[in-house]
Design a protein around this nucleic acid. Structure first.
Lengths: 136, 136, 136
DNA sequence: ACCGTTCTAGAATATTCGGTA
DNA sequence: TTACCGAATATTCTAGAACGG
């Protein structure tokens, strides 16, 4: 098996101290990066981002930020955070709170929770056993 | 072995992020296209569309939008969405919500569901086992 | 807009007239192909297959047999037919009836059906309305 | 308790083949 | 005969689930 060089410490342009999950701040950073615009970049209007070179993105960009080099894993995370893919066409994802130049919106993006737990919580059937309080 | 060139990435005039199925937005787009009016075009009143050159449509237009080049497949989709063919005359299809210049009507067109499931649901014999609720 | 070349008509070494689904016969054929052994090939024991060059497989092999060029779509089909991925290591999938040189075993591989329908059928709650018979 | 990685499955539409009214 | 439909597989996008950190 080949030797992969992980570099999860690529310089982030936004401070990691905020309450924004690591995935979101890393992803926002790598889309903002201008010297990789041939691979991944904002769409013209800055309302979504494009992956122009899926191969290069998976093998060169991803391992610089995450512990893997698979596009499928990246997409799984995108969906976990509510991003949607543009159908038919080049790889394009969007989220109402993921926009060019506005990293302050990222904190509005919430990671999805396991659905059957959400339902139970909504039905007041599930509480935190540790702190004895509702979860949502 | 023959080499077929599919190019399903023809530019769409509608946003794909809408809730309109891909087939409808693609089809509406290709009928609207003016530079292919010799092959497929709106009827004079804009209430239905005509396929003037079936061969050209199948072999040149279809593979630009879909992953096939068969007229029969296209017609199957039309029927799935409730389009009806005009008897007697050139190839002409119509649907009450498919009109020239009005892509906002497309969202009213509903795709048919597998019939035996529809019937069972109407008889209240089919529920989603996952969510414990009727499917329709 | 980019131009993609689909060639779903690559010569098959097994006759398509059998009752084996297209996906299985195509996949068995492309694994058997010796001139692409650098990209995809049988494991030494012939009990599973390896994808050695995922990038090349997705962009060069897949579109020669199927109407897409995405690894994810290929994996979805594999799972639909019951193939399992080998954890930890290079891309390796296996199925008890998918073995080197034995295309006669392929007919034992069954495609999965939507699960909630399977359950209903097993409970004798779902029949074909057309032919008035159980569906399985 | 939450996030990240991985593999598999759900669900809707799309393509194909063949049958029926 | 022709238009339409049934049903299975194929393609696409998203979610479930297990596990570890």
């Amino acid at each position: 098996m080949d030797l992969k060089v992980w570099n999860p410490c690529a310089a982030l342009t936004m401070k990691q101290s905020s309450n924004v999950p690591t995935f979101l701040s890393k992803m926002w950073t790598l889309v903002e990066e201008t010297h990789t615009n041939e691979i991944i970049t904002w769409k013209q209007n800055g309302q979504s981002f494009l992956v122009l070179d899926e191969q290069g993105f998976a093998k060169e960009i991803l391992p610089k930020y995450f512990k893997h080099n698979n596009m499928a894993n990246f997409v799984r995370q995108l969906n976990m955070y509510g991003f949607r893919k543009e159908r038919d066409g080049p790889v394009e994802f969007q989220h109402p709170y993921f926009k060019q130049g506005q990293d302050d919106l990222l904190e509005n993006i919430k990671r999805k929770i396991v659905q059957f737990i959400v339902t139970l919580v909504q039905n007041n059937q599930l509480v935190s056993l540790k702190h004895k309080r509702p979860l949502l």
